[in-house]
């Protein structure tokens, strides 16, 4: 729930910027420059959202932060191509000049376009690297699961013992990875 607050804020921020950019674009020709809108929206929308994710984990993630024990796991099944990791979440690239005709043609089409632009922008924000709050939250969940695996595993059961060792190994690797990118998780 509190994770979604980060996304909620991103969405709200993106909507705010989208509306502001669209409004300015309609008012003054010079404000139509898409690159200006993009540079404004990128850092401004991203920074507070990331901070919010870091500071406000989900209820369960808050518990995770309290219990930090280390350990590691088994590899996931396959790797997919990344979702459009383009750095610039262009809220309305090339949209501003088209505002007048498309909007006058049909408000519902304009709304659909605006929403599509917003979705693209939000996906770009979500997919951008460096969201340490999300990584730390996932790491905490890994730690809890690994602790459980090792507590649950019977020492007489070779498969369960191996599962514990695998989980510890995976956790160690993930921990190192998060530390190298983000430093210490709070």
């Amino acid at each position: 729930m509190k994770v979604s607050s980060g996304r909620r804020q991103r969405r709200a921020i993106a909507v705010g910027f989208g509306c502001a950019v669209a409004a300015c674009g309609g008012a003054t020709p010079t404000a139509n420059a898409p690159s200006a809108a993009t540079t404004e929206a990128g850092p401004s929308a991203g920074a507070p959202a990331e901070e919010s994710v870091r500071q406000v984990p989900t209820p369960r993630a808050a518990d995770a932060a309290k219990k930090s024990e280390s350990a590691a796991s088994q590899p996931a099944d396959h790797v997919e191509a990344p979702p459009a990791a383009s750095p610039a979440p262009a809220l309305a690239p090339g949209r501003a000049p088209a505002d007048e005709p498309s909007a006058s043609a049909s408000p519902s089409i304009a709304v659909a376009r605006a929403r599509a632009d917003l979705d693209v922008a939000l996906r770009s924000l979500d997919g951008r690297p460096g969201t340490c709050g999300a990584a730390c939250r996932a790491l905490a969940s890994m730690e809890r699961a690994t602790t459980h695996v090792c507590e649950t595993a019977s020492p007489d059961d070779a498969a369960e013992t191996r599962a514990c060792e695998d989980a510890k190994r995976t956790l160690r690797a993930a921990d190192a990875r998060v530390r190298s990118s983000c430093g210490t998780c709070r």
Partner: peptide, 17 residues
């Protein structure tokens, strides 16, 4: 553990598992 490992990988590297 596997899912969270994938989440971390995606978050930090842009990879999805």
């Amino acid at each position: 553990v596997s899912v969270q490992e994938a989440v971390i990988a995606r978050t930090l590297d842009g990879r999805v598992r």
